[in-house]
Design a protein around this nucleic acid. Structure first.
Lengths: 224, 224
DNA sequence: TGAATTGAAATTGTATACCGTTCGGGATAT
DNA sequence: ATATCCCGAACGGTATACAATTTCAATTCA
């Protein structure tokens, strides 16, 4: 478990926060988990100082929450908060797509179509999340707005760990894929407004799936 | 210059980052300024450790930029980066307004109108920025999306220090105010789509003003 | 039996000390 | 005069040490 850091390529806090970010995004460190400074310091072979700085960074990104004198835990979001993050996804991604459409060339359509075809052939549900991101980021890339795209990626990663399990199994991939093809078609037509509207509906459907899944859990599982 | 921190209300890094944030937003610490850890530590009566943690937080928010082994400086944005931040403003604020309109009641219209009237009567250009924010945040509030609103506020604050000087003087307040009244009118009609469109045009006009101001500066001032 | 208490271990928070890098100025060489 | 080198001061980065707080279990008291 003890993994050394590369020396001096980037600063220690940055390396640590990057590793933690991945672990949190991927779900290897679950929501609500305590992040003990001593553990992390020993794992990365450093003192607690750079660990604390990494945690502060992640705190500012919203990935971890600080409790005064009680340390940091991986942020855990309520259903309503996840729905709000999806609202933010709608805002950012629709704008990015709207700006991207006028800049798209044939190569962009082809690479996006290629991703969708691979998606069709992919049987493993665990890989769908990655393919979904590859499609979405591919159609936003022509917007050529690095800050906007960075925000989208952060937001997407953050919300991902809460929707992967429930949605990809519950909603399957048929309907999302159909919508992906429709969005790509609107892009080919050069109709930015239509593409953005379809994308909004697409993400909004995720919101509805989440709400439905939550209602189902409430009905089946224990109360609370 | 030495200002003590309140004891233990919130953590020292949080208090320090909050003060620094205000100083940067208000322009009291200019873009590009070096943030010396010793100075800040002495000013706040603490060691460099909590100062460094505060800087890391601000770094994650994009307000300061770290140069390895050379410390932190207040982030400075190019024209294109400011324009991109305004694109993000359009994305987030149009969505917030779109979600807010269906939730608005008469009291919301009245308080927004009151802000606009006070804005009309305000002669000091330095106060316009604050009034502008009061109007904008007032019409987004009924969306009842705390995370979205927090993102909007962060983004607005961040971009503010780059546009205040040039735009408020160059564009005056006549045209923005006219647009504010039009937006409020669309809200009263309950036409969320129209309100969002007008808001997008409103912010987009800021982009155009910035570009024009930049072109003017280029023409008048020194080369580079 | 159960609630309140206390004290030690665990953990966070921060000051101090030390190491490594960067930067600027002066000496030397061309 | 200009360029290069070197050294020392200044500064950033992090390990260590210590102080403060929380936690939890054992103990005491009702």
């Amino acid at each position: 478990m003890k993994q050394k850091l590369k020396d001096a390529a980037t600063s220690a806090p940055d390396q640590i926060s990057e590793k933690l970010r991945k672990d949190i995004y991927s779900g290897r460190i679950a929501a609500g988990a305590q992040l003990r400074q001593d553990n992390l310091a020993e794992r990365y072979g450093v003192s607690r100082i750079p660990v604390r700085e990494a945690l502060r960074q992640l705190g500012a990104e919203g990935l971890v929450t600080f409790h005064p004198n009680r340390g940091a835990v991986v942020t855990s979001l309520s259903l309503n908060e996840v729905l709000e993050m999806l609202d933010i996804r709608i805002a950012l991604e629709c704008r990015a797509l709207y700006l991207a459409v006028p800049n798209m060339v044939d190569a962009d359509f082809e690479s996006a179509a290629k991703i969708l075809k691979a998606y069709d052939r992919e049987p493993r549900a665990t890989a769908w999340g990655e393919m979904n991101w590859r499609f979405h980021s591919a159609i936003y890339a022509p917007a050529n707005r690095s800050k906007l795209l960075a925000m989208i990626e952060t937001n997407y990663g953050h919300v991902g760990r809460f929707i992967r399990v429930q949605v990809s199994l519950a909603a399957g991939k048929e309907r999302p894929q159909k919508e992906h093809y429709q969005i790509l078609e609107a892009c080919k037509e050069g109709n930015a407004t239509k593409a953005a509207r379809l994308l909004g509906d697409h993400i909004s459907y995720t919101q509805k799936s989440l709400i439905a899944a939550h209602r189902r859990n409430r009905a089946n599982g224990a109360e609370s």
